[in-house]
Amino acid sequence: MTITCHIRYVIDPFQRDAFEAYAQAWLSIIPACGGDLLGYWLPHEGTNDVAHALISFDSLAAYEAYRARLRADPAGAANFALAQAQRFILREQRTFLTPVTA
């Protein structure tokens, strides 16, 4: 069963460029650690402080293994540290989804 992790970010709208650089860095890190990155999205119109990411996994166990690899990955750790230092992410929410249609 495939699961998709939906991450909803509340970002500092005045640091949109910093969040975009953060998201760009994940484009190579996430697949290297075992996630199937579907993408990151920034606000275009309307609400200016909410961004999204979607990452799929074969199972919840595969997600847990990915999280362990991500924490041990030097590039992943550096990207997490950048977000903490610059404080452009104000809040994250994770929801795990399963597809209704194939």
Results as ranks from 00 to 15, higher is better:
Leu37Trp: 06
Arg16Trp: 01
Val50Leu: 12
Ile30Trp: 00
Leu38Ser: 10
Gly39Thr: 02
Pro43Cys: 09
Gln15Trp: 03
Ala25Trp: 01
Gly35Gln: 03
His44Ser: 14
Trp41Leu: 12
Asp49Gln: 10
Pro43Glu: 10
Glu20Asp: 11
Cys5Val: 04
Cys33Tyr: 05
Asn48Ile: 09
Leu42Glu: 08
Gly46Glu: 11
Ile29Phe: 05
Ala21Phe: 01
Tyr9Ala: 03
Asp36Ala: 10
His6Tyr: 02
Leu37Lys: 06
Trp41His: 12
Cys5Phe: 00
Leu42His: 05
Ser28Cys: 06
Val10Tyr: 02
Gln15Glu: 12
Val50Asp: 04
Leu42Ala: 14
Ala32Phe: 07
Asp49Leu: 07
Asp12Met: 03
His6Ile: 02
Ala21Thr: 13
Cys33His: 04
Leu38Asn: 09
Ile30Cys: 07
Phe14Pro: 00
Glu20Asn: 09
Gln24Gly: 06
Arg16Leu: 14
Trp41Glu: 14
Asn48Glu: 13
Asn48Pro: 12
Asp36Gly: 05
Ile11Ser: 02
Ile11Cys: 05
Ile29Ala: 05
Pro43Leu: 10
Pro13His: 01
Tyr40Met: 08
Tyr22Thr: 04
Asp17Gly: 09
Gly35Thr: 00
Asp49Val: 11
Ile11Ala: 03
Pro13Gly: 04
Ala21Asn: 11
Arg16Ala: 10
Ala18Phe: 01
Arg8Pro: 00
Glu45Leu: 15
Asp17Cys: 00
Trp41Phe: 15
Tyr22His: 15
Pro31Arg: 07
Val50Arg: 12
Tyr40Ser: 06
Ala23Met: 05
Ile30Val: 13
Ala32Val: 08
Tyr40Gln: 04
Leu38Gln: 13
Leu37Met: 13
